[in-house]
């Protein structure tokens, strides 16, 4: 089911988000607080460092190793600071049929494209929908699909709603493409008679902008075939939280956002990185947080995505 954390703002040491807090993202791989399954199918991140330009390639790291046992990740994260980070621990069903491959690790970001995407959730019966989705995906983008995840298909579909994903687009164009992506998915699901609850919490970034969407199709309509195998996404609306301030730091006995509430940094995560959720704010259902970082600082908006 996965867990995700993203940062946009003042340079922040990566280990302050990945390892140090009492519910840091890497800890969420084996001890998530708001999820019933573990996230043991690998780790991935993209990070833009302080010296990176607006259109620079990010640092990319993906590994099927368990991140809590990955000394390379630990060492990197203690040395590096990022102004933008999108990191993901992958959770998949405990099954010998699950595809554990490196090609399925998030975030997805095709060569030359500006935007990366990580997904928290799963689309029911996505394999059955693919033929219906293909007409909405640009052939050159479809050719880049390497893995077997529903998430990568969502990424390919979203990128296909842009004329040229290698170009820089205004934020409203990106958000419109995201809305169009959700509408296509809803339409194809209807065409195939799929009305099973499917979570689509999406995290999107190009290094200077960050969009985090809390969304579900057919929320609450869980599968009826086997009560003992009900997934959490069928019962719960997957959570999404954020905190705003200047830096994420250890103070007053715990990790928290310090500085002004209208600060220069945004931290978004599937669940808070601390057991104490004071200072974290939950994103409403069917809503996207849209943040942009420029010379004037950080600008944050909320956009209803109620389709």
């Amino acid at each position: 089911m996965c867990r995700v954390a993203a940062w946009l703002g003042k340079p922040q040491r990566l280990s302050d988000l990945l390892f140090e807090p009492d519910s840091a993202l890497v800890r969420q791989a084996y001890a998530p607080q708001k999820l019933g399954i573990l996230n043991l199918a690998g780790f991935g991140m993209v990070a833009w460092l302080p010296e990176d330009g607006a259109t620079s390639e990010p640092l990319t790291y993906r590994s099927t190793d368990l991140p809590m046992y990955d000394p390379n990740l630990r060492s990197l994260s203690e040395k590096l600071h990022a102004r933008c980070l999108l990191a993901h621990v992958r959770g998949i069903p405990y099954s010998t049929t699950s595809n554990y491959g490196r090609e399925n690790l998030h975030p997805f970001r095709y060569a030359g494209f500006n935007w990366a995407m990580a997904h928290n959730g799963d689309l029911a019966d996505c394999a059955r929908m693919r033929a219906g989705l293909l007409p909405f995906i640009q052939p050159t983008i479809a050719a880049q699909i390497r893995g077997s995840t529903d998430s990568e298909w969502v990424y390919a579909l979203w990128m296909s709603q842009l004329d040229d994903p290698t170009e820089v687009h205004a934020t409203d164009v990106i958000v419109a493409a995201l809305r169009r992506t959700l509408e296509i998915l809803a339409s194809v699901r209807a065409d195939y008679g799929i009305d099973i609850s499917s979570s689509a919490n999406l995290f999107l970034t190009d290094g200077t902008r960050l969009i985090a969407l809390r969304f579900a199709f057919d929320y609450g309509r869980y599968r009826l075939d086997d009560p003992s195998r009900l997934g959490q996404s069928g019962m719960n609306y997957l959570s999404l939280w954020y905190a705003v301030g200047d830096r994420f730091a250890h103070s007053d006995g715990g990790w928290r956002m310090d500085g002004e509430a209208a600060g220069d940094s945004l931290l978004v995560a599937s669940e808070p990185l601390t057991h104490n959720v004071a200072g974290w704010v939950e994103v409403p259902e069917y809503t996207a947080i849209v943040a942009a970082l420029d010379n004037d600082g950080l600008h944050i908006d909320t956009v209803a995505m109620d389709i």
Partner: peptide, 12 residues
């Protein structure tokens, strides 16, 4: 007596 319920928001 009376008790005030307060919500903490960082930076506020």
């Amino acid at each position: 007596g009376t008790v005030q319920l307060e919500m903490d928001i960082p930076g506020r």
